[in-house]
Amino acid sequence: MSTTTTAPAAPTDAAAPRLPAPIAGGRPTTGIPFTRLVAVELRKMLDTRAGRWLLIAIGVVIAGALTVLFVRGGGDHPFGDYLQATTMPMAILLPIVGILAVTAEWSQRTALVTFTLEARRARVTWAKVLASLVVGVVAVAFSFALGALAHAAAVGLRGATGDWDLAGTVWLGAAGYVLLGLLQGLGFAMLLRNTPAAVVAYFVLPTAWSILGSLVTQVETAARWLDLNRTMEPLFTGSLTGEQWAQLGTSVGVWVVLPLTAGMWWITRAEVK
């Protein structure tokens, strides 16, 4: 009967599995701290190939734009141009990071895990919003620094004339442009919960609205209050009048606050599939 005993050992599977040792101490009676949720959401933005490549792509586009500025015309451009070269690509592409942070939960169906490890869905979603803003603020600071660095390098290395003149609100405009775009992307993502739909809506809707506003006179008046591209323009040129602030506020309300609110309402009530 020795032949039966020399049969290849069964895989370790057959042996009784040993459960990991129980965790000492009692079970938690307090919830997950919000800061931890934000930290995890931040990590989730960077730990997938999609997220990482998106950030790399933004970096590449910015580097390309700066190189063009640096080479063309002997690098002789005002700082404002450099700032635009770093902020514009950021403003256009960064919202996709925010969109993916929300829609991936549904397209990859990770919501099943996310909303069972923290059942208070509004907290998770606010953590996503906050994490996106952290990424946005870091990105804005980075783009400002990079723009300044590039301008300084153009002055130092290529003998360009230094022109650091910037209207006070340009900083605000550039930062607002990136961060509001990010929030708008998040809002659309929460409403649509589908990556392609949210990306298309984010890029097409406001632009279509801008075009409509410039073509149809009846829409023109409304567009002055509701076209985010137009209401943000004064930020880049200098001071804003009271009416311009009101117009900016109104458009932000419609394109940013409304989608975020409706999206939040839906996420906290819907069935998670």
Binding site: R27, R109, A119
Partner: peptide, 25 residues
């Protein structure tokens, strides 16, 4: 109710759909 469990993962282990994980992680 599940939604009121503090830190629910420390109380309940769930496997509802093994395919519901991010393919890129």
């Amino acid at each position: 109710p599940y939604a009121t469990l503090p830190n629910p993962g420390r109380h309940v282990g769930l496997l509802l759909d093994a395919s519901a994980q991010h393919a890129g992680r």
